[in-house]
Amino acid sequence: MITREEVQHIAKLARLQLTDQEIMAYQKELSIVLEYFDILKEARVEGVVPMTHSVDLAGVTRDDTAKECENADELLKAAPSTSGRFLRAHSAIQRL
């Protein structure tokens, strides 16, 4: 069983504010799902290469050229809070 503290820790990593009720529900539900995932332990995968993608593409590149962004204004308009042409957010660095 996954603990309450584990759910709280993961929620913090994922930047999710959860209510007590949610924490309790997820604790129970995730335990059931993780128990099902234990089936993965049975699989024999010695020497198998992990598959990250179904298409074998490596290093798709394109020319490094500047292009005009036609809808920059619209994209900016979608932001909840702006200052000039910047998105406004809380400071990520604390002043000492």
Binding site: F37, L40, K41, A43, V45, V48, V49, P50, M51, T52
Partner: peptide
Amino acid sequence: AYYVKAQKIRSLIK
């Protein structure tokens, strides 16, 4: 145990 193992199983399925 979870993520990499799942990706290996993905290879097996393919």
